[in-house]
Design a protein around this nucleic acid. Sequence first.
DNA 1: CCAAAAGTGTTTCGTATACACCCATGT
DNA 2: ACATGGGTGTATACGAAACACTTTTGG
Lengths: 245, 245
Amino acid sequence: MKTRFNPHISVDCVVFGFDLNELKILLINRDSVEDVKPDKNKIKLPGSLIIRFEELHQSAHRVLQKYTGLDNIYLKQFGIFDSPGRLSDEEDVTWLKNQTNVEIQRVITVAYYSLIRLDDSKTTKLSESFNAKWYSATEVPDLMFDHNKILEEGIKTLRNELISQPIGFNLLPEKFTLNQLQQLYEVVLGVKMDNRNFRKRAISLKYIEPLNEWQKGLSNKPAKLHSFNRDEYEKFINKNTLFII
Amino acid sequence: MKTRFNPHISVDCVVFGFDLNELKILLINRDSVEDVKPDKNKIKLPGSLIIRFEELHQSAHRVLQKYTGLDNIYLKQFGIFDSPGRLSDEEDVTWLKNQTNVEIQRVITVAYYSLIRLDDSKTTKLSESFNAKWYSATEVPDLMFDHNKILEEGIKTLRNELISQPIGFNLLPEKFTLNQLQQLYEVVLGVKMDNRNFRKRAISLKYIEPLNEWQKGLSNKPAKLHSFNRDEYEKFINKNTLFII
DNA sequence: CCAAAAGTGTTTCGTATACACCCATGT
DNA sequence: ACATGGGTGTATACGAAACACTTTTGG
């Protein structure tokens, strides 16, 4: 029963989306694939066994491509889940075996998180064309295998990296307002921030570049648009080293 | 040819040692194991294929135990090296196969770094009892496989984590002086620091606890000893969130 | 008394924080 | 004119950085 899959190693993706309002997570419903007892968890993270000789990041990109149709997405490895008992549920293993046509023994999974800017078109297209559906990050159901644990670690990682690396811009439109940026931080970190101080800080950062463009078509005062300037960020980071002895 | 090893996944350890003066790295000489062409790299990181059903961190601890005789060592996963071509050298693969009695196809390795306080006894004991030897971090030879790359990533990780997490104390004696702490930072980060400002900073941190003990047996002024207080650190970190928008 | 490393204080500057009201737009 | 979200300034406090000499110990 030799297939193109490597039956020892998989990737799973915690896919974050931000619609300028809420943090969302992309989950796959396995219902459509096969009959399952109604009381079982049928929902999982997007993932796949790796293909022989495929690099892990390629596997992760392949998974994202399959479920979102998107390429060129921010994707970062954040952990390995290797507990020998992590695929303990027999029914789940049977399902996986049928899916992949591979005899499953022990599977180690490498976890990635990825960041997607959501506009309405993407949100609806996804949930129609695939078995993928966006869930609010605050209302995640029980998932298969150890996927709730992976998801939790993914959220921790996102929070950590949001406050130490310029990754948040991957969740915003190319041209964003400072209040959208603040909203992102508040939602992901679960805190409220002082608006005046937040913008003072943001405006002082050269890598957050003010554009000569404003929002359009709103029924209130349009906000100035900004963009992230990676070159300026590189200069900045070389001068600043945070320090906890 | 079924053995207890899982022939798909290995661990490799970048083992850092600090002797209060210099950063060292533990490497294994494969000379003693088998004849090798004299012009080949014979030196590698300590590592091993994982054993079936063993967790990865157990594998890493097993490797450290084997080569250092030490248990209870700080050990942290920092990366995965999965390039399909990373075991390209045929002779190296043959060697690995003979070592493990396992048919090798593609091996993904999970990299750990670990931190060891070196006193003289450890330094000498190791290099005698095992094939392990401490090398200065600034004078590392060519290594087998992709181990130079892994080592490089390990050093980057160490630097990053040293300035953002309280891991440096694992490289110092339980009771250390502030100047030893400064020396550690200077050596690992490759910078010079202002002594007065460094100690002011250190003294202001409650989790660096001054003891009522001083160095002994020196021919110069003995320094006050300090220890790391993890409880105080937990309090500290909950109040401080570093921030790069 | 000498060599070697430990230890100490002040000023200056920049950044974090706290806090409340007016402005611009479309309907 | 109103509803909605955008945008602004000041005073205080704290920590970072720059900088050079005195003290203690054993030999």
